[in-house]
């Protein structure tokens, strides 16, 4: 871990301004991913802005009847919130499927969205990785690819986004609220928040330098059955091979998003329309254009079968 200077931010706008002032500055909240990466010198900030003291830890009801979740709300608290459990069960379920109790107590809502990939080649600084070191190449392609992406990949990167929470947020049409260093605020629809790798896999979101997430808002509840099904090699404390987050209405309509298959939580709105027709039809739409490797081609039938189980559960 390289040396860095450290400050505690006093307000969101001040934090964003401080981030612009200092080259190589990073915000730190839960720290569960950033410190992990700093120890390996995958992340090498020169300045840390500790945002934990900011008053961004509330969950409030919005005037539209939705929820505004402060950026610093811990994963445990978000999953346990009565309103989330009642009206956004998918979000609660996705959070609880992720990480461990210890990590969820520390990890924040904003930090969860900003998690970096768990691709093992990204994590090994001896290996070329376009995400870690732009232009160095991708050691994963042609290597150990079983856990990696099957769709939305590029010749530069086949990493996945590791978050469970983000899959639920994607299905729930969340909006990411931010403040920039000049004090301006904006809302970024979750669909536009995470990027595909393309030629620039090191740029993972549409945030601009210094921009600080202050909240994530959810539209008013849509009802229906909320199911998050995470499939993995062990029963807990593991990243998804694939995950399926779905909201299914009584008439069989609904929406679905996937985890573990792409560089971002994967949703294809056109696939939602296929839900009444069943898993096969939905999976075909969701995964059209998939480019799996020999090692991870199993994810395609796995998505379809898991979707089938989810739709059956929704009916039952």
């Amino acid at each position: 871990m390289r040396s860095f200077t450290y400050e505690r931010a006093s307000s969101p706008a001040e934090a964003a301004a401080a981030a612009m002032r200092t080259e190589g500055a990073r915000f730190i909240a839960g720290g569960t991913n950033l410190l992990d990466l700093m120890k390996l010198e995958i992340e090498t900030p020169t300045h840390l802005i500790d945002v934990n003291g900011l008053a961004l830890d509330k969950i409030e009801t919005t005037t539209e009847g939705g929820l505004r979740i402060g950026a610093l709300v811990r994963n445990t608290d978000l999953a346990a919130d009565e309103r989330v459990r009642r009206d956004y069960g998918l979000l609660s379920r996705a959070l609880l499927a992720g990480a461990s109790g210890q990590l969820r107590n520390k990890a924040t809502t904003a930090g969860n969205l900003l998690q970096r990939t768990r691709c093992p080649y990204f994590y090994d600084t001896n290996q070329p990785c376009n995400k870690r070191q732009p232009g160095s190449g991708c050691a994963a392609i042609g290597g150990f690819t079983r856990p990696l992406a099957v769709i939305g990949t590029s010749d530069a990167c086949i990493a996945t986004h590791p978050s469970d929470m983000a899959v639920a947020m994607r299905a729930l049409d969340a909006t990411v609220e931010t403040v920039r260093s000049d004090g301006t605020v904006r809302g970024i629809p979750i669909a536009e928040f995470h990027r595909l790798p393309g030629d620039t896999p090191h740029i993972e979101t549409t945030l601009v330098p210094g921009e600080l997430i202050t909240a994530v808002t959810l539209p008013k509840p849509v009802g229906g059955k909320h199911i998050y099904r995470k499939v993995r090699d062990r029963a807990s404390y593991a990243f998804a091979l694939v995950s399926v987050g779905a909201i299914v209405q009584r008439d069989g309509t609904g929406r679905v998003a996937l985890g573990g298959v792409a560089h971002r939580p994967w949703r294809v709105e056109a696939a939602d329309a296929e839900m009444p027709r069943g898993a096969k039809a939905v999976a075909e739409r969701l995964l059209a254009g998939a480019r799996p490797t020999d090692e991870n081609a199993f994810k395609l039938p796995l998505v379809e079968r898991t979707l089938g189980a989810v739709l059956a559960e929704a009916k039952g």
Binding site: Y6, I28, G30, G31, T32, L35, D36, L48, D50, N52, T76, S100, G101, Q102, L103, N105, K106
Partner: peptide, 12 residues
């Protein structure tokens, strides 16, 4: 609250 003490800085 339980946490992993390896992934947090003392100064925090």
């Amino acid at each position: 609250q339980r946490i992993n003490s390896c992934l947090t800085l003392a100064v925090m």
